[in-house]
Design a binder for these strands. Structure first.
Length: 457
RNA sequence: GUGAUUGUAGCUCAGUUGGUUAGAGCGCCGGUUUGUGGUACCGGAGGUCGCGGGUUCGAGCCCCGUCCUUCACCCCA
């Protein structure tokens, strides 16, 4: 006997949990569809060359690799392996040519590049699938989790960004959440500031340190910048950019003054202004925070970047996204800019579980249980089941004849509110007994009356 | 990948300085009730104490390893 167990960082979902998850997925999907995004799917596994080098050094380490089939060691190009050095990192490329996808954006870029001739640009697609990361699990972090992505590729227009912000807001509101904040920044601003203030520090180093501001504060990041050779004087210039404030006209004007002398940063700010002008009359705008410290780790972003946080959740970001100008270029498709967002379904699920924010009707069962009380009644019960289903009533026929107590226990355990009894008495009278499990009342009815009272309750 | 942390019945947890046959509550199954549940009463089943090694006359308890859980770092949804 093997002790049943789950692989690290994965989880099972029972019927009740699945109802809640489906509620999340369908809420997101409906809003994606409402905005005209088309659904696609890509495989769980990709060629490893598709995946590596897209997520930065850390990302590559977190890729799940799939061992080649057959005699993978015999077929391996061992000449590429340094003699008697056993280094797993050098070994894996020789024996693993596929990997599980790490996100939905890179496979999408591959998809777009491959199918460029049959795609009409701008192309809006959504995708809701699991992704895998070989991370150490912790709070809000799993090795398998679902992302729900919407991207628009082949358009540089800022209305895409504006629409995606509205989608962020619509989804969280539809899920019954109000305390979400949509953080917004632009990589061009960061790049401009970085080259202006810290020309001797790489942009990647700059963003990774800056991104930690939320967690470790001013002291923490000034210490880390210090370790990278940045003095206190230079740091002072940075401090005025570390704001997290509601996005307003005044704020933008303020920043324009700061960034006037910096063409790249100024361009980034103009993009944000364009987005602001489109959303400023929507209620979504009230949830938007201009966040000068938002940087995003993924290296492919080039314009606006987003991150949605629920303050009291303790979960990090529950959704994120941004614009990428060069992602399809690696797959041979140049000058196609895209922008997209991703909802972290598992973190949203955890938050809703915690807060128990689900609408009541998604957890309640609307099913009816039909109980046959003796073998002769079974054909009648079976037929009744068919009749009820023909009338769009979700019906479960209790399989077999057992004590009524057991059948009623079954109804309680599954929270069925209505039970129909079919026994000798009912056969003789040509009626059905309808029992309400909450009130305990029982009534007799013919088929038409039965269907009616079920539909009314 | 680094550093902590956890594991005893289906679930939540007790278990004394190492000492006979490892307990409770809830749940589950059966009965009180052969056509009436969610309450009550009575009875019952269920454990390789995560796994492997070690110390000991003796290990659920001590030591080592390993896996899983949870958490922080790194990074991220």
């Amino acid at each position: 006997m093997i002790k049943p167990s789950l692989a690290k960082g994965t989880r099972d979902f029972g019927p009740l949990e699945m109802k809640k998850r489906k509620f999340i997925f369908s809420t997101i999907e409906n809003i994606f569809k409402l905005h005209g995004f088309e659904c696609i799917e890509t495989p769980a596994m990709e060629n490893i060359t598709t995946l590596t080098g897209k997520y930065g050094e850390e990302g590559d380490k977190l890729l799940f690799k799939i061992l080649d089939s057959g005699d993978y060691w015999g077929n391996a190009e061992k000449s590429l392996l340094p003699n008697d050095i056993i280094d797993s990192h050098k070994l894996t490329p020789l024996i693993a040519s596929k990997g599980l996808k790490y996100d939905l954006t890179v496979p999408f870029a591959r998809f777009v590049s491959m199918h460029r001739n049959s795609i009409t640009f701008p192309f809006k697609r959504y995708q809701m699938q699991p992704v895998w990361r070989a991370d150490r699990p912790q709070k809000g972090r799993y090795r398998e989790f679902w992302q729900c992505d919407a991207d628009c590729i082949g358009s540089k227009d800022m209305s895409n960004e504006a629409e995606l912000i509205v989608i962020f807001d619509s989804v969280f509101r539809a899920l019954g959440i109000q305390s979400h904040q949509i953080h917004l920044n632009n990589r061009k601003i960061l790049e401009g500031i970085s080259t202006l203030l810290f020309p001797h520090v790489s942009f990647i180093t700059f963003t990774t340190i800056l991104d930690k501001y939320d967690k470790i504060g001013w002291e923490g990041i000034s210490k880390e910048f210090g370790e990278n050779g940045i003095g206190e004087l230079e740091l002072k210039g940075l401090s005025k950019f570390l704001v997290q404030e509601p996005l307003t006209e005044d704020l933008l004007n303020d920043w324009k003054a700061h960034l006037q002398s910096n063409p790249l940063a100024f361009m980034g700010l103009q993009e944000i202004e364009e987005v602001f002008n489109l959303i400023k009359t929507t209620k979504s705008c009230t949830q938007v925070v201009f966040d000068g410290t938002l940087a995003r780790g993924l290296s492919y972003y080039t314009g606006c970047i987003f991150e949605v946080k629920i303050k009291e959740s303790g979960l990090g970001s529950v959704a994120a996204g941004g614009r990428y100008d060069n992602l399809t270029e690696i797959f041979g498709l140049k000058d196609v800019s895209g922008v997209g967002i991703s909802f972290g379904a598992d973190r949203i699920f955890d938050y809703l579980e915690n807060q128990n924010l689900y609408p009541k009707n998604i957890v309640e069962s609307t099913k009816v249980l039909v109980c046959a009380l003796d073998p002769e009644s079974m054909p009648f019960a079976f037929e009744l089941g068919m009749e009820l289903r023909n009338n769009k009533i979700e019906t479960v026929l209790y399989p077999g004849i057992t004590k009524l107590k057991k059948q009623l226990d079954f109804a309680n355990a599954n929270q069925y509110k209505l039970v129909v009894l079919m026994g000798e008495n009912e056969r003789k009278e040509n009626l059905y007994t309808l029992k309400n499990m909450e009130t305990g009342t029982q009534t007799k009815a013919n088929l038409q009356e039965l269907i009616q009272s079920i539909q009314l309750s």
